[in-house]
C-alpha cells in the first residue's frame, strides 16, 4: 500500500498531525535524582554555615559532622559503638520476632487465641516502651538482658499484628483447595499459610526493623557504656552537636542498610509476585 500521508492525493494544507497526548503518569526510575537532591541539600547546608546564616552550634556544617565522623572511625569508637548496638538490635529483634511469629501464627489459625490475643495486643502495643524502662531494670537488671527486652517487646507486638493479618490475607480458596486434596493440617500450614503470609510478614519486618533501631536508643538509656544510641545520648548531654549529628548519620545509614537488605530479601523470596 502506498504511504497515504506522503501521496499527493491528500490535501496537504488540511493535513494535521495527531498530537501525542498520552505521556506522564507512569513512574519511571530516576536513579540520579535522589543523589543529586542529596548533594544539593548538603551543599546548601554547608553554604548557610559558611556564609554565617546558621551558627555552627545550632546547625554544625556537614564538614564538621564529617570531621566528627572521621574522628569516630579513626579512634575505633564507631566500630565499638556499632558493634554493641548491632548485637542488641540483632538479639532483641530476633527474640521479639520469634515470639511475635509464634503468637501471631497462633492467633492467625486458632480463633480462641485470636479472641484472647487481639484485645491484649491492643492494650499493650501502644504502651511507650520508654515508660517501662524502670520496670525492665527491675525485672532484667541493667545488663544486656534489659536492652534485649526493650527492643524485643517493641518488636513483638507489631510482629504479632503483621503475622496474623498476613495469615488472614492468604486467599481462603487455596486452603479449600488443599483440604479438598486431603492435605493434613501441618502441610497446609507449611505449604500454604506460611508462604502466603510471607509478603505481609516481610512488610512487618520492615516496620519492626525501624522500631528496633528507634528503640536501641531507649535501650541504651539503661547504663550502656557503648552503643550508637548511648553515643548519641551522650553527645546530646554534652551539647556536642557535631558529634550528635555524626551519630545520627550513622543511625540513618544503618536504617538505609537494613532497608536495602530487606528489599534484597523481598526480591529473593517474593519473585513469584
Amino acid at each position: 500500500m502506498p504511504d497515504p500521508i506522503n501521496t499527493p492525493t491528500s490535501t496537504q494544507s488540511t493535513l494535521q498531525a495527531v498530537r501525542f497526548r498520552g505521556g506522564g503518569f507512569h513512574p519511571r526510575r530516576h536513579p540520579w535524582a535522589a543523589l543529586a537532591a542529596f548533594a544539593l541539600l548538603i551543599a546548601l547546608w554547608e553554604g548557610t554555615s559558611r556564609v554565617g546564616l546558621a551558627s555552627p552550634l545550632f546547625l554544625p556544617p556537614p564538614s564538621a559532622v564529617g570531621r566528627a565522623l572521621a574522628g569516630m572511625i579513626a579512634d575505633g569508637s564507631l566500630w565499638l559503638n556499632l558493634k554493641a548496638s548491632l548485637l542488641r538490635i540483632g538479639v532483641g529483634w530476633s527474640l521479639g520476632t520469634l515470639g511475635g511469629l509464634t503468637v501471631g501464627l497462633l492467633m492467625g489459625v486458632a480463633s480462641v487465641a485470636r479472641a484472647v490475643g487481639v484485645p491484649l495486643v491492643s492494650a499493650f502495643f501502644p504502651i511507650p516502651k520508654i515508660a517501662l524502662l524502670p520496670l525492665f531494670i527491675l525485672w532484667f537488671g541493667i545488663g544486656e538482658a534489659s536492652k534485649f527486652a526493650t527492643i524485643g517487646f517493641g518488636v513483638f507486638f507489631p510482629t504479632v499484628i503483621a503475622v496474623y493479618s498476613a495469615i488472614d490475607s492468604v486467599p481462603r480458596n487455596l486452603i479449600r483447595m488443599a483440604q479438598s486434596f486431603g492435605l493434613p493440617w501441618g502441610a497446609i500450614l507449611r505449604n500454604i499459610l506460611l508462604p502466603g503470609a510471607l509478603p505481609g510478614i516481610l512488610a512487618g519486618f520492615r516496620i519492626t526493623a525501624s522500631i528496633a533501631l528507634i528503640l536501641v536508643v531507649a535501650a541504651e538509656m539503661i547504663g550502656a557504656e557503648y552503643g550508637i544510641g548511648a553515643f548519641v545520648l551522650m553527645a546530646g548531654n554534652l551539647m556536642q552537636t557535631d558529634t550528635l549529628l555524626a551519630g545520627v548519620m550513622v543511625m540513618s545509614a544503618l536504617g538505609l542498610t537494613i532497608g536495602a537488605l530487606l528489599s534484597l530479601l523481598e526480591r529473593r523470596l517474593l519473585v513469584w509476585r
Partner: peptide, 26 residues
C-alpha cells in the same frame, strides 16, 4: 473426589510442577 476450580487455585509461589507435586506430597 477431586476438584477443578474456576479460579484455578494455584499457589503463586510454586512452579507448575511443584503445584502438581503439592497434592502428592502427603
Amino acid at each position: 473426589i477431586t476438584y477443578v476450580f474456576q479460579d484455578f487455585a494455584l499457589l503463586p509461589w510454586r512452579s507448575v510442577e511443584e503445584n502438581v507435586a503439592l497434592v502428592l506430597a502427603h
